[in-house]
């Protein structure tokens, strides 16, 4: 189902949704676009901070919470295709697969309706195409929105639930011209993203030809020299899902929390007896790239990097994944 909404009508639709669910939409806060409770319509700027991961795999949660009270449904508006690829291709397979599936993840995933948005204004740091993605959504969300102009939004339902959300919405049908406009908008975004990076990493990266450079200790020491081990790249990444299972003090009762962990933290590879398999930052830094660009591809069949560019924007040391990949190719 395709429907065209004016901005006023879209606001009405969002207001209606906010009565039956928690509604988060992108909100401009200073330089950044962040998800926040619905106030206004800001659908064009990419990326939105706090990826889909934050809503289906929160940074800290009780490990046994599945028997807790039902959570109210959440509608998340503004999710980009990079996050959807990461969730479908990696997170769902880890936490909602056959082996030891995670009841709370499944519940939160089911409770989260995804309203995706085509990338109208991709950032300079976006490079999804080279990771095997595209800057618009044709499947994986409940509804997809294409901003056609400042006042016209094309909504397409992509699931039964999406169809239900759009029913009785008093919008008009789409014209041929508007569908062609959508194609043009998508083409423009595609070309813009394509210009941001030109090395294909969609089938993993660390191949035989790169092994020599990738094993050079000095090379990684140089690259990681500015890294302050803050973990921002891991935490903003829509596919980094490493967690640590921590105990909470509670006398003889079991209470554990799952918290995001970062492979750049020194403790990540340490074990009892003061042994640490990767005590040096440069080794852990290298591991992060190998995990994203090689191990995850081998395991999931899609690149662990979905090209959202959040690690580039969030790094206080201005480390740019694209430059590191370029460097590996050139050396």
């Amino acid at each position: 189902m395709h429907l065209v909404f004016s901005e006023r009508k879209l606001k009405n639709l969002f207001s209606k949704w906010s009565l039956e669910a928690q509604l988060f939409t992108p909100d401009i806060q200073g330089r950044l676009v962040m998800y926040s409770e619905f106030a206004d319509i800001n659908l064009k700027k990419t990326p939105v901070w706090g990826s889909l991961k934050n809503y289906i795999l929160p940074s800290r949660r009780a490990a046994f919470e599945d028997s807790a009270k039902e959570k109210s449904p959440l509608i998340l508006v503004g999710v980009r295709n990079c996050d959807i690829r990461g969730a479908l291709g990696i997170l769902d397979r880890v936490f909602a697969g056959k082996e030891f599936s995670d009841p709370l993840y499944k519940k939160m995933r089911k409770n989260t309706l995804i309203v995706s948005v085509d990338c109208f204004m991709p950032a300079d740091t976006c490079f999804c195409i080279q990771t095997g993605g595209i800057p618009f959504v044709s499947a994986g969300s409940d509804i997809n929105i294409t901003p056609l102009s400042n006042d016209q939004y094309l909504l397409e339902s992509l699931s039964l639930e999406g169809k239900r959300l759009l029913s009785n919405s008093n919008a008009r049908g789409v014209s041929e011209l508007e569908l062609r406009m959508r194609n043009d908008i998508r083409d423009t975004a595609f070309k813009k993203v394509q210009g941001n990076f030109n090395i294909d990493i969609s089938r993993g990266f660390f191949k035989k030809t790169h092994t020599e450079t990738s094993e050079k200790k000095e090379y990684w020491e140089e690259l990681s020299a500015n890294c302050i081990q803050c973990g921002a790249c891991n935490f903003t990444c829509p596919t980094c899902y490493c967690t640590i299972l921590n105990e909470v003090s509670s006398r003889n009762k079991f209470f554990k929390v799952l918290q995001w962990d970062s492979c750049l933290f020194r403790g990540y590879f340490s074990r009892a007896g003061k042994k640490n398999l990767l005590p040096k930052l440069s080794e852990r830094f290298r591991y992060r790239y190998i995990c994203k660009l090689s191990l995850m591809y081998t395991e999931f069949g899609i690149s662990g990097c979905v090209g959202c560019g959040r690690c580039i924007q969030s790094c206080p040391a201005m480390i740019d994944m694209r430059e590191i990949i370029r460097g590996l190719c050139e050396n």
């Binding site: 490493c242 340490s270 074990r271």
Partner: peptide, 24 residues
């Protein structure tokens, strides 16, 4: 093999060694 493990069930990635999860 002995590795740092957090979840023990292939969810947390801490024990990855080469192409293997030590836990799984």
């Amino acid at each position: 093999l002995v590795r740092n493990m957090s979840c023990g069930i292939g969810k947390c990635r801490h024990c990855i060694t080469g192409d293997y999860y030590v836990c799984k």
